[in-house]
């Protein structure tokens, strides 16, 4: 998740992060504003061609879209089963477009660049009491700690399995909670030790 591909820098890498985020945001909104299968077909075609046109490697793309693709397939199957193939196409095109664009974005953009762009977008929010720098940091931390949390869950589940507690949700959630809270404490200290003061 959130892997970035830097083995070869393409034109997609070179586009400014803010611009890519804007395209994603607008397209994400646009696909839900139309019900025309031809327009939506155009959108998903564009979204699929984008990574191809930059010759991004296929393996990480496939890896990242697989979970979402399963979900979309399930939704589409449901629509087909209830006899509504047009809706099946619409849902596939809408979600597919957003996911393909999101993958193209994360594969070619550094988190720090995205955070900088978002911080810039959030600047006006400071007038309603929201700190743009803090919001940006929160976002990058969330992205950074998703894999850490996954590792933690795996470790805890293995430990509980060794004790014969694999069936117990409680036995996984409790240590996870304790470890996450401790981690959050440590992290807060580490961030302030590195001179961060939220401005």
């Amino acid at each position: 998740m959130f892997e970035i591909c830097l083995s070869r820098i393409t034109w997609l890498h070179r586009l400014p992060a803010g611009f890519k985020l804007l395209v994603l945001a607008f397209t994400g909104a646009a696909v839900f504003l139309t019900n025309d299968p031809r327009i939506l077909g155009g959108f998903i075609g564009f979204a699929a061609l984008l990574p191809l046109s930059a010759w991004l490697p296929l393996a990480p793309i496939v890896k990242q879209i697989t979970p979402a693709a399963t979900l979309i397939a399930a939704l589409a199957t449901f629509h087909i089963v209830v006899g509504d193939p047009v809706s099946a196409f619409l849902v596939t095109a809408r979600l597919g477009t957003v996911i393909l664009l999101a993958v193209a974005l994360t594969l070619t953009t550094r988190v720090s660049a995205m955070v900088d762009a978002l911080e810039y977008c959030f600047t006006p929010l400071k007038y309603i009491g929201i700190n743009p720098a803090k919001t940006g940091l929160t976002l990058s931390l969330a992205i950074r700690f998703i894999p850490v949390l996954f590792t933690m869950v795996t470790e805890i589940r293995e430990a509980q399995k060794a004790r014969g507690l694999e069936g117990s949700l409680f036995a996984v959630v409790m240590p996870l909670l304790v470890r996450t809270l401790r981690m959050a404490d440590d992290l807060a200290e580490a961030i302030s030790a590195r001179g961060y003061d939220g401005n």
Partner: peptide
């Protein structure tokens, strides 16, 4: 693990 803030080393 509890002090690395950004996903990439150089970041």
């Amino acid at each position: 693990d509890n002090q690395i803030v950004y996903p990439l080393v150089e970041e």
